[in-house]
Design a binder for these strands. Structure first.
Lengths: 231, 231
DNA sequence: CGGCGTCAGCTTACGGTGTTCACGGAAGAT
DNA sequence: ATCTTCCGTGAACACCGTAAGCTGACGCCG
């Protein structure tokens, strides 16, 4: 019963987020829509920042599920297909849920994040892609860049990266981490610019650019690009 | 005299932005700091969104000046050096002015941008980099990708891009635009993730990654990478 | 059964916000 | 000297987040 109202609160918050954008989410409006008063919500969340963090965590798992759901429609052996659809699902979800994406990936307010739930959910989301990349490594699809080409300063950071993500520098080389990181940044950059509308004045439809980047990023990784099949 | 108070308002807004982050900028606080009352500000700006847009435009020109300033410290013939320092100046400014960057590049509120001043300033900022890239093309530093490799859908978008930016498909090929766009997205992505703290949990210091990306993006463009000289 | 503790939700209140409106006053132009 | 134009104020409205204290219902336990 408590769980139900808790879910209802987040549901309404989500609706407001979608309709008004982040910043348009207000405790009072949520309470109003639920036939409650604002202070009553404090039984469930210690502040509006707390609510937003909880929502944020939910959104990360929702996004992760969207990605995994799309990916799992393909046979497990089809690593190429799963990678392609996962990345496309990421973009699709982001575009279909722009305000949500802005909340998740935009600058947090003065209330510093550091929320355990959010971090956990974000980690799970990231792990989705790490797992796929791991398959790619196991299948030895591509030649890893030479370790000597990687500056020592970057290598040190990659160490932190590896320990944080569960990869270890034993089973995964610096070169692999380097490639993973730069591939992710590149594709993430396109989606980020698209959601935040940075090129709208310049580029009408960004899907061709995304698809082209997809191809250009994945091909050197040994992933066979396939055009998107339209249903 | 009107100009002076107008500047003072924006100055105070800027200070609040830097201290409290976007969203922490309030008309009443600005007025308070200036010994005025909030409604008085409406003689200068029609709303707080209007003020923020004006500020945004100023910030774009400030950023452009920071980039051009750093770049112009090098001799004009040194295209390589100017490109490197311009991109580094972009990152440096973004990191030194995170809330400002968030205002400029984050999602605008419900008040849709479409502000002429902002667009103009943003265009000028972008032109800074376009000019450098143009030099690169004139010097024919690198082999352009074949046009046939570029999907027709993307080509159509690149046409819009070209007409919008002053490049024409006469003096600049699809391949060049394709390279420019993907290079920019890649470097922008790193800075964006760094400012928005997306990898802070994973990567402590992102400067090595940025420098590595810089090298990897620019080398194929025929730009000789040089490590950053520390003063 | 009576008492007790826990909890949900309300009312009230405080201080903050953007914005509108009607007003005063100063300065410049005719 | 009057008229106009503009700057800035004060009061008001409608919101917002949050703290404190209260009421009422529920379950548990003696």
């Amino acid at each position: 019963m408590r769980e139900a109202t808790l879910a209802e609160i987040k549901e309404n918050a989500r609706r407001q987020l979608a309709e008004q954008g982040p910043g348009g989410v207000s405790l009072r409006a949520i309470a109003r829509d639920m036939g409650m008063t604002a202070p009553g919500l404090y039984r469930y969340f210690s502040s509006i920042g707390d609510l937003l963090n909880a929502l944020k965590a939910d959104l990360f798992t929702e996004l992760a599920e969207a990605v995994e759901g799309a990916s799992s429609a393909l046979p497990p052996e089809d690593t190429d297909g799963r990678i392609l659809t996962s990345l496309r699902a990421f973009r699709t979800w982001a575009l279909a849920n722009r305000p949500e994406f802005a909340l998740m990936f935009g600058l947090p307010g003065p209330d510093r994040t550091a929320d355990a739930r959010v971090l956990e959910a974000a980690r799970h989301f990231a792990a989705t892609f790490f797992a796929l990349f791991d398959r790619l490594l196991e299948e030895r699809r591509f030649a890893l860049p030479a370790e000597e080409g990687i500056p020592p300063a970057l290598r040190a950071q990659l160490d932190a990266f590896a320990t944080e993500t569960g990869f270890t520098t034993d089973n995964v080389s610096y070169g692999a981490l380097r490639v993973l990181l730069s591939s992710w940044v590149r594709l993430y950059g396109v989606v980020c610019m698209e959601v935040f509308d940075h090129l709208s004045l310049i580029l009408g439809d960004m899907e061709p650019l995304f698809e082209a980047e997809l191809q250009e990023v994945l091909t050197p990784l040994g992933v066979a690009y396939r055009p998107q099949e339209e249903p």
